[in-house]
Amino acid sequence: MSHRRRGFTLIELLVVIAIIAILVSLLLPAVQQAREAARRTQCKNNLKQLGLALHNYHDNLGCLPSGTGGNGFSPHARILPYIDQSPLFNIIDFNVSPNHANNLVPRMMNLPAFLCPSNTDKLPGNLGGRNNYWTNTGTTVLNGMPSTVPGNPNFGMPVPDGVFFNSSKIKFRDITDGTSNTAMMSEKMTGDGSNGISSPRTDTYQPGTYPSNAEEAYQFCMAVDVNDLSKQGISNIGVPWILGDNDSTYYYHTQPPNGRSCRYPPSRMASAANSEHIGGVHLLMCDGAVKFVNQSIDRVLWRAIGSRDGGEVISEF
């Protein structure tokens, strides 16, 4: 008596596998989109929470934290008690620099509140805690305050017109353009960590030119040959969050969202807000609202949103 068992033939199996593979390939983009949508929602929510924390800070202390406060600490370090991070706040030694050995533990710590889940982290591990949420320093091109020494190339340059800069301590009443018309924070991706690789979205380039205003900074930056590695400037972008600096916590409204970032001699900057979300960036307004701004926004309008007291008329965006 024959006990021959009927099984699947090779062809049948291959056909089934092929069908499953086709179905998976159709499904994967949808799954990835759903995952990115979830990450984007979390990213937006983080920005909202930071806005609430900054408002609570203002309610308690009568002003917003400085973009770069005493000893160089960032606003992020100052608002820790308002995002349920009092224990971390308490171990920071504000009497010394953020880079001092006393602050090694907080400097190296990654906080989910400062991380956008959509960001791809390519930085070396030991540079410090990452930051994807940057404060608005405005539409001027100086990194810091203008020189008070006649003859210095930065003498007489305009003071930053954003909300966070050196010892700024801006009050809501100082935001005369209106809190609903002025940017407080936006997103920025971390850098690629290597000057040997050109990443136009995240690297900060060095055109070697001397811009005096926002439009010159934009034009000079766009003229850079990004394939020329000698034009690399900063690739370690977004670390550490504890340090208030142009490559870790504050950005400029000179460049459009997802635009190119540059630095120029002597001590001039144009670092753009950017994100891995398709088509734009999230923007926290000073009234606490979070909007998604399209990267094709008019540069003049983007700069108007960046200044706190420019008197511009802000249209819908």
Binding site: F8, L10, L13, I17
Partner: peptide, 22 residues
């Protein structure tokens, strides 16, 4: 059945790799 197991396993392995790579 025995000789069919090998390609089936291979196919399943490929499928698992595709899913994991996502």
């Amino acid at each position: 059945i025995r000789c069919m197991k090998s390609p089936a396993r291979l196919g399943l392995l490929l499928l698992a790799v595709c899913l994991c790579s996502a």
